[in-house]
C-alpha cells in the first residue's frame, strides 16, 4: 500500500522528470504532451500536499491547475500550431551533448541555491531555471511558450511546497492570468508564423540595433 507521502514524492519526481524529458524531444506535439504530463504531476503534488497538511481548499485549487495547465494550455498550443501550419520540428541552438551538459549545470545550480537560504526547496528553483534554459536553448516560438509555462510550474510548485493555503480566489486568479498570457502568446506566435512564414525566433531581427 503506497502512502500519501509516497504519492507526494512520486509526483515531485514525475514533475521533474517530465520537464527534463522535454529537452530531449525533437517534435512539438511530444514537447507539449510532456508539459501536460508534468502539469498533471503538479496537480497531483497540489492534492497530496494539501491532504498531508489537512488543508482541503488546495484540492479545489488543483482542479484549476488540471483544467488550465493539463487541458486548456496544451490544447490551445496544439490548435494554434496546426492553424498556422507551423513546422512540428523543434529547432535547437545546441547539440544533444551540450544540451545535457547545460541541463546538468542548471540542476547543480538549483541544488546549490537551495542550500543557501533557509528552506527553499530544490524542485521549484530547478523548474524555473529549466524553463528559462528551454527558452534560451530553443529557437522556435512554441518552445518559448512551453519554457514560460514551465517556469510558471516552478513558481506554482514553490507556492504548493512552502506556502499553501493561499485564498482560492487569488490562486484561481493567478492561474487564469497565466492561461491568458499563454493564449496571448499562442495568438501572437500565429501572427509571427503568418508574417515570417516560420516560427524561428532568429528571423525576428527587424528591431535589432
Amino acid at each position: 500500500m503506497i502512502s500519501l507521502i509516497h504519492w507526494n514524492q512520486l509526483f515531485i519526481a514525475g514533475l521533474l522528470l517530465f520537464t527534463l524529458a522535454i529537452f530531449g524531444k525533437p517534435r512539438l506535439p511530444a514537447v507539449i504532451r510532456h508539459f501536460a504530463l508534468a502539469s498533471l504531476c503538479l496537480t497531483g503534488l497540489t492534492v497530496t500536499t494539501s491532504l498531508l497538511r489537512g488543508d482541503a481548499h488546495g484540492v479545489y485549487a488543483s482542479l484549476g491547475t488540471f483544467a488550465f495547465k493539463v487541458i486548456a494550455i496544451p490544447t490551445i498550443l496544439l490548435y494554434a500550431m496546426r492553424r498556422s501550419r507551423a513546422s512540428m520540428q523543434v529547432s535547437f541552438y545546441l547539440r544533444p551533448a551540450a544540451t545535457s551538459f547545460v541541463v546538468a549545470s542548471v540542476l547543480l545550480a538549483a541544488y546549490l541555491i537551495s542550500l543557501r537560504p533557509a528552506a527553499v526547496p530544490f524542485l521549484p528553483i530547478a523548474l524555473v531555471l529549466l524553463g528559462l534554459s528551454l527558452m534560451i536553448m530553443r529557437k522556435d516560438l512554441s518552445s518559448q511558450i512551453i519554457g514560460f509555462v514551465t517556469m510558471e510550474n516552478g513558481v506554482a510548485a514553490y507556492g504548493v511546497l512552502t506556502v499553501g493555503g493561499i485564498p482560492l480566489l487569488v490562486e484561481v486568479g493567478i492561474i487564469l492570468t497565466v492561461t491568458a498570457g499563454a493564449v496571448l502568446m499562442a495568438v501572437l506566435s500565429r501572427h509571427v508564423q503568418e508574417m515570417y512564414a516560420t516560427g524561428d525566433t532568429e528571423r525576428l531581427t527587424e528591431l535589432t540595433e
Binding site: 528559462l132 527558452m135 516560438l141 518559448q144 514560460f148 517556469m151 498570457g181 496571448l184 502568446m185 501572437l188 506566435s189 501572427h191 509571427v192 508574417m195 525576428l204 527587424e206 528591431l207
Partner: peptide, 15 residues
C-alpha cells in the same frame, strides 16, 4: 516590426 516588438514585450515581461 510591431509583431516582433509585441512578441519580445510579452515574453520578456511575462518572464
Amino acid at each position: 516590426a510591431s509583431i516582433e516588438a509585441a512578441w519580445k514585450y510579452v515574453i520578456l515581461c511575462s518572464i
